[in-house]
Structure formats: structure tokens, C-alpha cells
Amino acid sequence: MNTVVLLKRVPDLVEDLEVDSSGTALDSEHLKLTLNEFDDHALEQALLLKEGGGGEVTAVALDSEDVDKMLFTALAKGADRALKITGTGAVNGTSELAEVFAQALGSVNYDLVLTGVQASDDIDGQLAPTVAAKLSVPCIEVITGVEAGDGSVTVHKEYAGGVLAEFEMTLPGVLGIQAAAQSPRYAPVSKVRQIQDSATLDEVAGAGGDNGKFSIVVMTPPETGEGAQMLESVEELIAVLDSKGVI
């Protein structure tokens, strides 16, 4: 079974996010990108499937800052091939990104596509189903376990309230991974460096992207309130309520 993993770099949230002067984008000077942690789980799940039943794993990512290191890391972990999508224009939002990924997958031989169930810029988890729709294949999201079958996969999907369902999905198909069966493995730096010296990244010219249907009107950090006042006693509370004219 050949698996493709869609990897996405997202803003590292430990950095202060600032909106640039245009008011419609994050300030790239203070922005540091990092691999979406759910995508890391998707990659881990793909590697586990490969180790369990063979097949190839291909890591796919859009060209961005430090993407090479991320893809070499995927190779160091055990992926067989890394594909970098280059030359796309601005990709606004998940819908456009899904289009770019779907186009790129046209050149890849795959049975199963895995990606993270969500990302900090895709909280509603639209990437997996949108890619599936564009490829006209089935999709299941919030997956915590995958077992390979013959022409199909058996997957565990989580629902709210701790309910777990088991699905069988005919391949090809797309899964949005919530968590791999084990924590994403660590790729030692020396191995990544060795891979960097010996392996190459495949490149494919990006197609799709900016479809003109979406544009960001304004981006702004949440407005902060005036802060809380800590009250020490009931008398203080009464005084505050009194001053507000509540009582």
C-alpha cells in the first residue's frame, strides 16, 4: 500500500504573532514556521503502516521557509520519497491549498492519503475532506488508528464523549489523522544531515492555488478587555456593584 502524507508548515505559536502593516497577514519577520503537529502524527501513522505491511511513503509539502529540512527529516524517519510543490502563487486558505495538493497528487501513485485532522490555521479540519472531494475519493476524519486491509483500510474514528467507531474505507481514500498509534518518532540530526547529503527532494510545479474566490479583508489579534480586578472582601464587591449602579 502506497501512502502519501500531506505536510504543512504553520506558524509556531510560541512566537508572538503580529499582524503586518497591510493588516491582512501575519508579519513574516516575527513568524517562525513549524510542522503542524497533527501532520507529524499522520507521517508517523504512514510509517507504521509501511513497517507493518510494506509499501512506500511519500511526504508532500508546499515550498516554504525551512521546508527542505522538514522533508529531509521525513526521509530520515523512513519516508521513501519527498515531493516539494514549487512555484505556486499565494495560497489563501485551506480550499486553495487543497486544490494545490490535489493537483500535485496527479503525478503520484497512491492508495491512501493521510494528513493532520486540523492545524492552527485550519481549526475546522477542512483540508482532508476538501482534498478528498477534489480527488473524488472517500474521506474519514479524527482518526486514531489505521489497519491496512486488502484494498481497504480499517480505521478508528473518535467522536465526542469518548465514543469510538470502527470504519472500513475502500481505497483510494483520505484520512484526517488525530493521533498515530505511537508518538511521532524522533529523527536524529545526524541522520537528517546524512540524508541531506545523499538524498534529493523531488519537485513538482504547483498548479491551482489562488482562485480569486477568497481574500482576507482584515486580520487582527483578539481585543483584550480592560483586565480583571481582584476583590478581597464582600464589602469591596458591594462597593463595586454600588458604583456601577447595579444595586
Binding site: 524517519k77 523512513g78 508518538s183 518518532r185 524522533y186 529523527a187 536524529p188 540530526v189 545526524s190 541522520k191
Partner: peptide, 21 residues
């Protein structure tokens, strides 16, 4: 053990941070 990718999970998380940050 680390080269084989089998560093303990809690350690791996810190090593990743050291690598990235």
C-alpha cells in the same frame, strides 16, 4: 538508540525543541 529513532518520547520532545528553537 537515538540514532535508531528510539529516544524516549519525553526526551524526543525536548530534543526537537533544541533543534528548532
Amino acid at each position: 538508540i537515538v540514532f535508531e529513532g528510539n529516544a524516549p518520547d519525553d526526551l524526543a520532545e525536548v530534543l526537537r525543541s533544541l533543534d528548532e528553537k
